[in-house]
Amino acid sequence: MKHLFGKSWLTMIYVFLYIPIVTLVVYSFNASPLVTVWSAFTLKWYPAVVHDSELVGGLILSLKVALLSGLISIVFGTFTAFALVRYRKFTGRTFLASMANAPLVMPDVIVGLSLLLMLISVQRWTGFPDRGMFTILLGHALVGTAYATVVIMSRLREIDTRLEEAAMDLGCKPFQVFALVTLPLIAPALVSALLLTFTLSFDDVVLSAFLSGPGSTTLPLVIFSRARLGLNPSINAVAAIIIAVVSMVVIASSLYQARAERRRQREVNEAYAQTN
């Protein structure tokens, strides 16, 4: 009885989580231009997406911003994390630590608004920057750096400092220690941080809404504005494409990880077999 209850509870949760997504995908094959009424099966919305320059432009911009802000975030995140973990005492350490964490807890609306106000006054004084891709990138990198710092810091704390000392002992200058030992060891955290900040940037609406300018509309902004004017199934098609791509990436990466783990396990077993 208890067993049955647990199972049905789990099923309900899955249904609640995935029914909207399934519906979304199913309705991308709906012939009717109304999102809520099913008429017949069609594939016409998919070619329509490709010819919808606003959607395609938004997607390209979103991808560019997500990738660039992800890369900027992990670079600055690594610096910040390194300073906070490796140097226990320096003036302004507490200040830096709280500043690095502030964007995590600050509501996006506040961050977006304050950035916007700042950028407007900077633009008034210097004539730069115009609102557009650059300003969106700035906002996303700001928040992304905070997330990246947290992820990289936790990995950096786990690394045995004796490894870095050993490298120095064997003739590495401080920069070489970082490049040859620290960086390879935190690489998994860098990948996680990149994926995280990429995703955060890719689906951000609030910051982009504040910071975008004419001609620089990210995909979430396009979808959001269309939702207000009345959706059409081409949005469903876009969503279905994104879901398909994301699923493929996730499946491929877990397959790869499983294979690497199996290979590692096999090597360990071989090693022990040869020792005995």
Partner: peptide, 19 residues
Amino acid sequence: PPYQRPINMMFQSYALFPH
């Protein structure tokens, strides 16, 4: 600095580079 000394050290718990 350590990297200019003709001295090498075998660390406690070895500190072999795992990668």
